[in-house]
């Protein structure tokens, strides 16, 4: 027992001071893509051709909902027009807001929180049921990490619960495999109204690497109404936390 206490002392308090300060992300972290059109060569389509999910389209519009943050566009570009910033705040309230016509740090639009009534309902206590519907276990893992001592999600009144009947909403990962459709719908029905749906990862937003496979439904949109989209493959835990807290009007 003494030994356990000693070890506990040695392990120290590790909860980050977020949101008062934001932890340093690794230098190579790929956050919001920044495209500098001035550097583009006319009619060059190298980045568009390199993109595995057609996230980049003509006019260098970039759809964060499809983007895997995979670096292929950057490697393909000869002029250094594309880079990834350290900006981790990427969540959006609508699918259209994820399609950036002009991707730069200045154009960053942080999301609006829920209306006053919903904030009153969920703002201080928000229980989520997580459903993986074809997710690769990376989005799931980086969601799970929020419950560790580092992020200590509980201190914001947000918690993952075991039963949909105890939940205020769903947090869904994965491209929604056909084989999970029914289970997902049933889980949604079991959540008492009013309820929110948060989708995490490019899979759940658009199908991600699995876009247009006959075995998947290209994300949650075709199945359920979505309140919050959190892009990434997988999104960094901070990106998820930022999205959820902003939605609740806690940031």
């Amino acid at each position: 027992m003494i030994n356990v206490l000693l070890k506990t002392l040695n392990q120290k308090n590790r909860t980050i001071d977020y949101p008062k300060s934001t932890p340093v992300l690794p230098e190579r972290f790929r956050g919001l893509p920044v495209i500098d059109r001035a550097k583009c060569i006319a009619n060059c389509k190298l980045c568009i051709e390199a993109c595995p999910t057609d996230a980049l389209t003509d006019g260098l519009k970039i759809d964060l909902g499809r983007c895997l943050f995979c670096n292929k566009c950057l490697s393909a570009c000869h002029t250094g027009a594309i880079s990834f910033s350290q900006e981790h705040r990427l969540a959006a309230r609508t699918r259209e807001d994820l399609v950036l016509k002009d991707s730069s740090l200045n154009s960053l639009k942080l999301i609006e929180s829920l209306d006053k009534e919903s904030r009153r309902l969920f703002g201080r206590s928000f229980k989520l049921r997580q459903v993986s519907a074809g997710g690769c276990n990376a989005c799931e893992a980086d969601t799970n990490v929020l419950s560790t001592v580092v992020y200590d999600l509980g201190r914001f009144g947000v918690q993952f619960v075991a039963s949909p009947r105890h939940a205020d909403g769903l947090l869904i990962t994965g491209p929604v495999s056909r084989n999970m459709r029914l289970a997902l719908e049933k889980t949604y029905e079991a959540v008492p109204a009013p309820k929110l749906v948060i989708v995490v990862g490019s899979c759940a937003i658009s199908g991600g690497p699995y876009i247009d496979h006959p075995e998947v439904l290209n994300g949650v949109d075709p199945v359920l109404p979505v309140d919050l989209y959190i892009p990434g493959c997988p999104p960094h835990p901070l990106t998820i936390l930022d999205g959820v807290l902003r939605l609740l009007g806690r940031l």
Partner: peptide, 10 residues
């Protein structure tokens, strides 16, 4: 089978 995304055929 719930996670089947059709990787091998793709």
């Amino acid at each position: 089978g719930y996670q089947h995304r059709g990787i091998e055929p793709a």
